[in-house]
Design a protein around this nucleic acid. Structure first.
Lengths: 351, 351
DNA sequence: CTGAAAGCGCTTACAG
DNA sequence: CTGAAAGCGCTTACAG
């Protein structure tokens, strides 16, 4: 390992001079230093630099599920934006667990200059300690109670869910169910409230048996959909509150040979890679992902650069309802309970 | 910032003793040290520890595209396995660019104890410098010429592609096309050779107009499929060499209203999240992903732990052909050029 | 612009 | 088991 001392000796200057040259300051023996660095193939020891300067050049990124396509896209945006300003990403997966998240935070603190965090739950206390410790952090996609002092980049969950509810009710649905994420997460809480508000504007309510809570993963979307389908009065439309649960719902439909949108309409929060390729194509609430990551990273890095105690910034990104083929007007509500109409239904369905 | 000196003073011992206690060595004043650490809420400075010990506790991970679901799953496996042994992940996205990859490698060297690398191209020279520098690295999913000394975890590309070709030829297809990835990548080269070998076993060949090369991204899959569809003699079956290009092909089919499998059969390398939900469900060559990541990480960490110069290890994971609905026997080869049979075709297709 | 010197916070032989 | 001391490789006032 060649050190700054070797370079200094070779260039015939002091280590101070080499250090200055490295940091871009004007130096008389610039050429000699450059030559020595080249010949010795010298690279500064990053750990030593960090120890002295206190800068780590690294951002901690904590997401609940890196294999969720939404977060994968977010991480792509984070990586791009961080690269532009010569920062690196220390990535960790909390697996939707607040314990794991807390561990990660203490583990990474001291290795990073700041955090991008999508907390597992809104009640997580661990992120608050970041603020106390004066470590810059921006919350992404999810917030935390008591975290008013954090910079935040989120999506308009309320508006997005409301647009889904409005769409379904305007089609004439009255038996509408929701498969929501945990209400102790920001998306779960906000999508629920937006959906409910929009339903009640249409004078509809959400009976308990239609008001289901999953965990944002595929399995729960599947199981809760099966549960809905088994009801004496199944809903004619379902809103699934994120991409993975939508996938689960679609798989449940397939296994039960339920036809979309003839038997049931579905609208999901989040688009799917193959959403437009499905038969029928999926109606969904789309939103930016890569851009959200890039935005959050720029916000964090500017916060780190100008350590100014500017007031916390809050960015809310818009959603877009993509109306495709998985939603349609309901059939007469109790149709499937009227044997005399069965023939008619069937022929309609097969035409 | 409280330091080891503060703890030593408070506990009434030397810093050596505190340092020993921290590293788990037996110490007489253990209780006093523990108390001081607790009261002072002391956390060792990681940078200082690294500077002295030379250990960084971090693994560099370089993938071509983090938003590709395959690599997202791999990263999930990498993260899990690294966590088990108290290592962290410095993640970077080379964006399929070898220049970017080379930059990343020099940027991360000095910050990590080893690399997990999926090289952009097989001719990349940058990874070889890792070996020269004595930095442990395992190649994942992709290899590099001259990299025989690296540990490697790959999938049986040849066998997987061969099974796809065998499947198509056994269905009776003779006009089979391939949309491959760059042949300067391991998957591109090997999937091509496996596919070709299996075709020639069936006495089939791959004419130039059926032998297309994309870039493993969705856009190229789409464009090349459109190109195939525009041929005077379009193929009756297509093999797409990765998940993203398969998505592109499916979108091309949809936009051209080409019916699968009636008009054309498709088999893709890699399963898709919604693969089984498509209409028809996608026939594909499936393979492990999370497990591949976990395996590669364990290999690397064991290499770092026992710095033993064991001979390089090479792990080849198996694939599994999932026969679903997107492949079927071809219609009579020149059917669409025989107007007299058009009526028959149509009625068959609609039944 | 420059060099000598102190020090960032730790670990690790060394001698007890 | 323990402490004093050297040193990991750098950066940064300090005095010229």
């Amino acid at each position: 390992m060649t050190t700054i001392n070797d370079v200094a000796a070779r260039a015939g200057v002091s280590v101070s001079t080499v250090s200055r040259w490295l940091s871009g300051q004007p130096v008389r023996a610039a050429e000699a230093v450059r030559l020595a660095v080249d010949e010795l193939d010298y690279t500064p020891n990053v750990m030593a630099q960090s120890l002295k300067s206190g800068r780590r050049g690294t951002i901690g990124v904590v997401v609940p599920d890196i294999s969720n396509p939404f977060f994968a896209a977010v991480v792509k945006g984070l990586e791009q934006a961080s690269r532009e300003l010569s920062f690196r990403l220390l990535l960790a997966n909390s697996d939707e667990s607040n314990e794991r998240e807390a561990e990660i935070l203490v583990d990474l603190t001291g290795r990073v200059d700041g955090f991008i965090l999508a907390p597992a739950h809104e009640q997580d206390r661990a992120p608050l300690r970041l603020r106390e410790a004066g470590i810059p952090a921006v919350l992404l996609d999810r917030e935390v109670t008591g975290g008013e002092l954090f910079d935040v980049v989120v999506v308009d969950n309320v508006g997005g869910a409301a647009s889904a509810a409005r769409h379904l009710s305007s089609l004439g649905h009255t038996a509408i169910a929701m498969i929501n994420g945990p209400t102790d997460t920001t998306p779960g809480r906000e999508r629920r409230s937006g959906f409910l508000a929009s339903l009640s504007e249409a004078d509809l309510d959400l009976p308990p048996e239609y008001d289901l809570t999953g965990d944002f993963r595929e399995g729960s979307g599947r199981n809760l959909t099966l549960q809905l389908l088994g009801l004496p009065q199944p809903p004619t439309a379902i809103f699934t509150a994120n991409n993975l649960m939508t996938v689960g719902a679609l798989k449940a439909f397939q296994s039960m040979r339920v036809r979309v949108p003839q038997d049931v309409s579905i609208v999901g929060f989040d688009d799917l890679t193959l959403g437009s390729l499905l038969q029928p194509p999926l109606t969904c609430v789309a939103r930016p992902d890569v851009e959200q990551g890039a935005l959050a990273m720029r916000l964090l890095l500017s916060r780190i650069a100008d350590r100014a105690e500017d007031p916390p910034r809050r960015v809310v990104l818009g959603t877009c309802l993509e109306v495709r083929g998985s939603t349609a007007a309901p059939r007469v509500h109790t149709a499937r309970h009227q044997p005399k109409r069965a023939g008619q239904q069937t022929s309609t369905a097969r035409s």
